[in-house]
Amino acid sequence: MYSQGLIGADGRTVEDEEFLTRFQARIDDEQKIEPNDEMPEGYRRTLVRQIGQHAHSEIVGMLPEGNWVTRAPSLRRKASLLAKVQDEGGHGLYLYSAAETLGVSREQMTEELIDGTAKYSSIFNYPTLSWADIGTIGWLVDGAAIMNQIPLCRCSYGPYARAMIRICKEESFHQRQGYEIVMTLAQGSPAQKAMAQESLNRFWQPVLMMFGPPDGESRNTDQSVKWKIKRFTNDELRQKFVDATVPQAEYLGLTIPDPDLKWNEQRQGYDFGPIDWDEFWRVVKGNGPMNRERVAARRKAWDEGAWVREAALAHAAKRQAQAAE
C-alpha cells in the first residue's frame, strides 16, 4: 500500500509498507507516539478529528450546564456547577492544545466548529429543561464520558493520553456532583422526585447514543483500535455503562425507561432495548433540538470576542515596537 502523506508536524514522507509495519510495531510494543515522530497520515488525521471533536464537545458542553448556573437553587450548588462548567472549558483547552501538536491551530478548529462542519457529541444538542437535568448530566453524561475517557488515558498518542490523564483526574468530582444532585431530588418531595424521573426519561436514550453507532456501522472503529487510539468498541463501552448505571438508578429508586431492561445471568450483564438510531443520525446531521442554538452561541462568543483578541494583539505589537526603539 502506498500513499503520499504528511508525517508528524511538518515533514513529508512516503508511507511504504516497511514504514507502516515499523509504525505498527511501535504501537504493538505500547510505545507512545510523540508530536515530532513519524506517523502515517491516516493516524494523524484520525487523531485530529477525534481530539478536535472531543475538544468541541467539552466547549459546547459548557452551554447546556451553563444554562443553569444563574438559576442554581443554592449557593453551594451554584459554586460547584460554575467550577464544573469551568472545568469543561479547561478540558476543551487541554484537548485543543493536544491537537495543536499535530499542526492544526485552535483558531482553525474553532472556525470549523462555528461554521458547522466539525462534529461534537450529540448529547449537547439536547436542552436542559429542569434543574434535575444538571444532576442527570453529571451522573449519566459525565458517567458515560468517563467510560469513554479512562481508556483514552492509555491512547498511543502521547499528548492526547497526557491531556486525558489530567482530564480524568479533574472529572472525578463531576459525576459525584451530578449523582448527589439527583440523589437529593430522589429523596426529596414528590415534585422533586418526579423532576428527577422526568429528566432520566428524557436523557436515557441520548446518553446511550453517546457511545456512537453500533460496532457494525462504525467505520472508524477497527483501524482506531489497531492504532490503540481507541481501546474498546462502542458497544463494549455502552454495555459497561449500562451495567454500571442500573444499580445506581436502583439505589435512587428511579426507573430506567426501558421495558426490555433485564439482567442476563448467562452474559453477566444487562440486556437492554433497541436504541432509536434514526434519531441519533437526525441529531448528528444537525436536526437535534438545540444544534443551531449551540453553534450560534459559540459563533456569537467568537465573533463578539474578535475585537478583544485583536486589541490584545495590537497592544502586544505596540509594546514590541516600543522595546525595539
Binding site: 466547549i59 459548557m62 452551554l63 451553563g66 469551568q86 483547552l93 462568543a301 470576542g305 478583544v308 483578541r309
Partner: peptide, 12 residues
C-alpha cells in the same frame, strides 16, 4: 459569562 467569553483562557 460562563461559556461566552472572548477567548477560552478567559472562560476560565
Amino acid at each position: 459569562w460562563c461559556g461566552h467569553a472572548p477567548m477560552l483562557e478567559e472562560d476560565l
